[in-house]
């Protein structure tokens, strides 16, 4: 009966994942492999960036950035997507059994430290070696274009591509990712947690469900579970470096603005 409970938990988290995230790996892979009805518009230089801004992103227009330099405009739009994903992750976290019964301060702490790790894990779903989907899958921005931006903006995405290529080699699907993301959120060693043992117990249950699910979903990948645990450590490093870069941009780039929600998350993070 314990195995049935874990299977039912995996199903529940998968449903919560599909319900709360606008984009998922199945949708993204269909677009990236040319199976979508309309192929994404490719952004590979300043001209195609302008065209995309005029035609693709009117719904997510950001006030006052039209006349700023391209690097700043891209940075601001990345923030919009991040804010939206934090909102989706918060709703997803609330679907984890017992999460909403945790001390409210602990809920805040788990999200503060977990959202960027979860976000970079899910970002891999919309990436391939040549670029990533933008504007809800309607655009594809090339990796080379991002590398061609001026410093320090050209340093933002490359580490995420490097992580994504290794992560995507594990060939996880959305059902695996739903449990992986839940396990990231329920990390009992985040600074300042009050009820550590309660969170550790919750994570243990999710991790058991993940191990069982991987066993049936990837019967031939015998080292997948330990590899995924290692990825959790890699994601922490990736977020630490990202947070340092954002602080640097905030200090040196007078024209950039950090969204209040992201400011809250980055403040006193590491």
């Amino acid at each position: 009966s314990q195995m049935a409970d874990l299977k039912s938990l995996a199903k529940h988290m998968f449903e919560a994942y599909l319900k709360n995230f606008n984009m998922n790996k199945t949708k993204a892979r269909a677009i990236l492999t040319g199976k979508a009805n309309i192929p994404p518009f490719v952004i590979h230089d300043m001209e195609t960036l302008r065209l995309a801004e005029e035609n693709l992103v009117s719904k997510q227009a950001v006030n006052g950035i039209q006349n700023k330099e391209a690097e700043v405009r891209i940075f601001q739009r990345c923030q919009c997507t991040s804010v939206e994903t934090v909102r989706e992750l918060t709703e997803f976290a609330k679907c984890i059994p017992e999460f909403i019964n945790l001390d409210l301060n602990d809920q805040v702490t788990l999200l503060k430290y977990g959202v960027y790790e979860a976000m970079f894990a899910m970002l891999a779903s919309i990436m391939n070696k040549d670029g990533l989907l933008v504007a809800y899958g309607n655009g594809f921005m090339t990796r080379e274009f991002l590398k061609s931006l001026r410093k320090p903006f050209n340093e933002i995405m490359e580490p995420k591509f490097e992580f994504a290529m290794k992560f995507n080699a594990l060939e996880l699907d959305d059902s695996d990712l739903s449990l992986f993301v839940a396990a990231i959120i329920l990390s009992g060693d985040r600074p300042g947690l009050v009820n550590v043992s309660q969170i550790e117990q919750m994570q243990e249950t999710i991790v058991q469900a993940l191990r069982l699910h991987l066993h049936s979903n990837h019967p031939d990948a015998i080292y997948l579970f330990p590899k995924l645990l290692q990825k959790m450590a890699d994601l922490r490093q990736l977020v630490t470096e990202h947070a340092q870069l954002v602080q640097k941009i905030k200090k040196t780039e007078a024209d950039t603005f950090l969204h209040p929600l992201l400011q809250e998350i980055y403040r006193d993070m590491y």
Binding site: T90, L104, V108
Partner: peptide, 21 residues
């Protein structure tokens, strides 16, 4: 901690709460 994370706190309490982009 809640005081320092007002928007996160609001998102946790109320899913319909708007977050301006």
């Amino acid at each position: 901690l809640k005081e320092k994370h007002k928007i996160l706190h609001r998102l946790l309490q109320d899913s319909t709460s708007p977050v301006d982009l």
